[in-house]
Design a protein around this nucleic acid. Structure first.
Lengths: 189, 189
DNA sequence: TCACTCATGTAAGTTGTTACATGATTCC
DNA sequence: GGAATCATGTAACAACTTACATGAGTGA
């Protein structure tokens, strides 16, 4: 599948670029350049992975034995098409099954789902349930703040602006929760 | 073309810790420690900053003359309460009014709204309208992909997982759009 | 007194950004 | 032949993360 439909995270800050690349390469062996443009076209709005980052991570993964490069250029042409080796597939599987650190990015779960489409969904249901618990708790905290601070009938513009910022947080939690409940039926216990 | 690196912070990245801190300090003069914990509460859902980052930026802003520290601890107690100076307020105003670079983070607009609650909403309506146009375009692109790739009645689990990832992106765009339309009435032309 | 919170920082290491650099291929 | 695109890198610098370090105040 194309990376387009996976490129939906708000931001992938702080999460491993390597596992996203492994997933892409499992879907289709590619050159670093192709990966970079695919990321740029589809994730460009919110995740700019520069070609330097991608080449660096490809180099590391090659050294770790997760992927291997085939020289596919004509004589003298430097062009490396990378493909995932068994140890890379196992690493991706390990990462998918490993619980996410508490309080951390739901965006990582999107990458995990895409990876799971390739290596299997073991252990993901628990992670989605953990996400739900976390988001639910936050939603309730935000709603409590809203009740406390923004229920006056007469509010200044400044208060209404702050309310809208909180409102965005509330909508975000609700949106994640709605999504997560829709994902659950696809996952094994 | 060469770009001055000090201008990069907000020109290219659209989002600056400094302006978020200025806003918080205008709302209430505080210590770095208080900012770190308050930040968690008020903007924690879209932005986390460590205390090291905050102390570093406070130091820089103090050096730039945007803020000033009052020693508020008892004798021997090191405790600095920062407050915003006029040049800091002007800088924040400048940043709020300056259009966001195209394609960049909607989260910056949340920070701008909070700042606008303190320094005024000049120029923000155009930025929210730009956000709407951008999000709408992306939503349509995602919906087109959904139509093209996920309308089969019989889908494998792998396909359904990928569909859910796309679904998350669609929901995110819709959620932003709904929010942005609610914010518009608060802003001046 | 002991644990916890308040409060500020330094240092080392990793990651990300920007500029610089090279050369082949493809299409007009 | 020239421009755009394909393709891969190095080097310098900026930002971020994690661990370490210190010490005062507060409440049980």
């Amino acid at each position: 599948m194309r990376v387009d439909s996976s490129a939906l995270a708000d931001t992938l800050r702080g999460m491993s670029i390597q596992h996203a690349l492994l997933t892409s390469l499992l879907e289709q062996p590619s050159t670093g350049y192709a990966l970079a443009t695919r990321f740029d076209r589809s994730m460009g709005y919110f995740w700019q992975a520069t070609h330097q980052q991608i080449y660096r991570e490809l180099g590391r993964m090659a050294q770790a034995g997760w992927i291997a490069a085939l020289d596919t250029g004509a004589a003298g042409r430097r062009k490396k098409t990378y493909q995932v080796l068994e140890s890379g597939r196992l690493e991706l599987l390990r990462w998918v099954e490993q619980p996410l650190p508490a309080g951390l990015s739901s965006e990582a779960l999107l990458v995990k789902l895409r990876a799971a489409a390739v290596v299997g969904t073991q252990g993901l249901k628990a992670q989605v349930l953990a996400l739900i618990a976390q988001r639910q708790a936050r939603l309730e905290a935000y709603l409590a703040i809203e009740q406390r601070d923004f229920t006056d009938s007469a509010q200044t513009v400044a208060q209404q602006l702050r309310h809208q910022v909180l409102r965005r947080g509330i909508m975000l939690e609700e949106s994640w929760l709605q999504w997560a409940h829709g994902v659950l039926p696809l996952l094994q216990d």
